[in-house]
Design a protein around this nucleic acid. Structure first.
Lengths: 242, 242
DNA sequence: CTAAGTTGTCTATGATACTAGACAACTTCA
DNA sequence: TGAAGTTGTCTAGTATCATAGACAACTTAG
């Protein structure tokens, strides 16, 4: 395999190799703690120069997915994030419970108005002013999901700025006096990542994603926030408890 | 957007643009015969140099998906291949009926032995000698599907060589005296393309594929050949008639 | 006919991707 | 201790990717 052989597909060789290895980790061919084949061996199986393999491994290591040990080998660091879907769902707690460090980052916060569907979910009138928050969440340095959240602009003014500062939805709600909240019905579907999310999630174009739509309520059942989240399917495993 | 901005994702910019446009065609945002936005406009929407857009369009044009007309614009040439699933299914006839030129190419022909499942489909005993033919089929210059076919090595000796010469399953069967054949039950599932098929189908890694398993029989109902085909989901549309 | 808008082609420049070979530094195992 | 195998680092060369600007060739609308 070389850039010429693949008819110049527009995908860098190192990315093909990295994706191949990541897939191997995702589907269990390489378990957490396992030693990967040597760089030379990987280079041979992909018919690629060793430096190209090193580029691929560096990309995976930079995300914390593998760890190289000089003189010994390269080892699998991470595994699929087990993500239980309960009534009480907090990203940071779930990630922390797996021994990984949660991160959040604001991508964009804009004003929006409620479509009929959003209004129904949030118990508002169609056209009501909303704040739309686009955010990404990571475990260690691996992007896990991108989510679009809508909140009432009346109840949560400047929500975007608050999220940018706190980097946490839970803290954002606390800032407005919401001490606790629960998740209502959750819809799970699957799809293919679009170009925008692909870059944000560091996913190859067209990879499968898990799409979760949910609305959070306060303890009296009043809707607070509705979300549309896209998870990298290969990095997460939803657990529905019965 | 530039190679630096995207943190060097390993996917060429022109490929992102080409994929975006192809997706636009696939999901109907640009219909067959439609004029695409001008190169400058595309360059602006993707925040990319016009030359990069031209590279993307050239890749699409080379596959026959779009056609550029100097001084006028670039037009959508192709549409999703309507692929009726009938008892009598012939790739070349289906493609020809859409006004496109069918092509077939042998990728590999090897000897194989029947697994229990293959044996049951073909009415043979487990371990019976088979010929396994890996082939790709195209409409004009666009790859449509990769299929793995198994035939009895006893009934169809040198089937690989015959297919390589005729480039058609129908003609292959004719060569062995089969004048007509019918398709039995067809199973349709979906999945994600693997790295090997991605290159063959010129698909981005992880794109969705339609997987079709079927067995062809002669007119007396004797199994002739069983197939496992992977179609590029975005280029084909199965029609099941009732 | 003219002007505006389109695709086609050319040159040029810098950054990145991939290959190739060599050697150092380190670990593991016999 | 020594040999084999591993990752880390360096230099070098070629090809591709992407940007930039300019102009030609052509079509369409007015």
């Amino acid at each position: 395999m070389s850039m010429q052989d693949t008819a110049s597909s527009g995908v860098a060789l190192w990315r093909l190799v990295a994706d191949g290895i990541e897939r191997g980790i995702a589907d269990g061919r390489f378990a957490a703690g396992d030693k990967l084949p040597g760089e030379m061996e990987i280079a041979e199986t992909y018919r690629v120069n060793r430096h190209t393999v090193r580029r691929a491994l560096a990309a995976l290591a930079e995300r914390g997915l593998v760890r190289a040990e000089r003189g010994s080998g390269t080892y699998v660091e991470a595994q699929k994030l087990a993500y239980p879907l309960r009534s009480r769902t907090r990203f940071s707690e779930i990630v922390g419970a797996e021994g990984r460090e949660p991160h959040g980052r604001l991508i964009e916060a804009t004003d929006d108005v409620a479509t009929r569907e959003l209004a129904r979910e949030l118990g508002l009138k169609t056209g009501a002013p909303l704040v739309r928050i686009e955010a990404i969440r990571l475990a260690d340095r691996t992007p896990i999901c991108v989510s679009t959240s809508w909140l009432s602009a009346v109840l949560f003014p400047d929500a975007g700025a608050v999220f940018a500062a706190t980097r946490s939805m839970t803290k954002l709600l606390e800032h407005y006096g919401v001490r606790d909240y629960r998740r209502g019905a959750t819809r799970i579907t699957a799809g293919i990542v679009d170009a925008t999310d692909a870059v944000r999630l560091d996913l190859a174009l067209g990879r499968p994603i898990l799409v979760v739509d949910a609305t959070d309520h306060d303890l009296e059942g009043k809707p607070l926030m509705t979300k549309h989240s896209r998870f990298a399917a290969e990095r997460v495993e939803f657990l529905v408890e019965s």
